[in-house]
């Protein structure tokens, strides 16, 4: 094995320190969430999970309104995922595959929506939704979240589709496929993992979003909106367990999509 130079050593020290900076807070909230309730009020706190217990987590989950809001959050996230893929993926495909007048304009328009604080638009939308009778429903939140996710979905799916060479579809067309058939048999199977990663990210985006959800709902809150609205009146165990609960999907989903990180973000921005 090659002898490690000092710069290699320092590189690894720095790498580990930066990783600890990210991981340690997650570790601490996990320790807190799986401590019994009386330990949570204790001071000084144990830094290691001495007494692992589900008591705190169960307390959170059984608190009134939590389970319903979890269910709503999942429904909203799935709706967002479905609508933004159904609406955005065709546009992504068009941007990736066709050369047509207005293509660049559309692309720039989509990219520049990122310069707008889209969630803030939930305030005027809430007023409209009240008039339409959609206010305080999962649909209203899903519609807003889709608007939030759509530019992202369009750009990501377009880069995912662009990663499949046009030649492959054209080859299929010379071998007897229609354009739709070529998409179905060639592009779709090849882009499925990338599209799934985009979908997962959309799901996380919606699961995490709190401002618009809190504005657009009153009684039918999503999980983050519910936690936010009761946060400052809640006991510590509720807060810690809630924080950890909100964080879990993030950790799991990141594991799934880490291979596509740069497809999702790296290429979107260039």
């Amino acid at each position: 094995m090659r002898r490690w130079s000092w710069s290699r050593v320092w590189l690894h020290v720095l790498a580990v320190l930066l990783a600890l900076w990210v991981i340690v807070p997650i570790y601490l909230i996990a320790v807190a969430a799986f401590s019994p309730r009386d330990v949570i009020y204790k001071y000084p706190k144990p830094l290691f999970p001495t007494q692992v217990s589900l008591e705190t987590m169960l307390f959170f989950i059984r608190s009134s309104g939590v389970l319903d809001s979890v269910r709503r959050s999942i429904v909203v996230a799935l709706l967002t995922l479905a609508v933004s893929m159904a609406v955005g993926a065709p546009a992504g495909y068009a941007l990736a595959r066709y050369v047509f007048p207005g293509r660049d304009t559309f692309r720039i328009a989509i990219v520049s929506t990122r310069a707008f604080p889209i969630v803030i638009l939930s305030i005027p939308l809430a007023v409209s939704f009240i008039n339409l009778g959609l206010y305080d429903s999962v649909i209203s939140v899903a519609l807003m979240h889709t608007a939030l996710a759509l530019p992202f979905t369009i750009l990501v799916t377009s880069s995912v589709f662009a990663s499949v060479p046009v030649d492959l579809e054209e080859a299929a067309m010379t071998l007897g496929c229609s354009r739709l058939g070529a998409f179905w048999r060639i592009s779709l199977p090849l882009t499925l993992p990338g599209l799934a990663a985009a979908a997962i990210f959309t799901f996380v985006l919606s699961w995490n979003e709190v401002f618009a959800a809190a504005i657009l709902t009153l009684r039918n809150r999503t999980l983050p909106a519910h936690v936010l609205s009761v946060l400052n009146e809640s006991p510590l165990p509720f807060r810690f367990a809630g924080g950890f609960f909100l964080l879990v999907p993030a950790l799991i989903f990141m594991l799934f999509i880490r291979r596509y990180l740069f497809n999702l973000w790296g290429r979107v921005v260039r």
């Binding site: 060479p165 030649d167 492959l168 054209e170 080859a171 299929a172 010379t174 071998l175 060639i186 199977p189 090849l190």
Partner: peptide, 12 residues
């Protein structure tokens, strides 16, 4: 029938 410069052999 056509042969492409990039071959366009379906990878999947």
């Amino acid at each position: 029938a056509m042969v492409f410069q990039s071959y366009a052999v379906f990878p999947h």
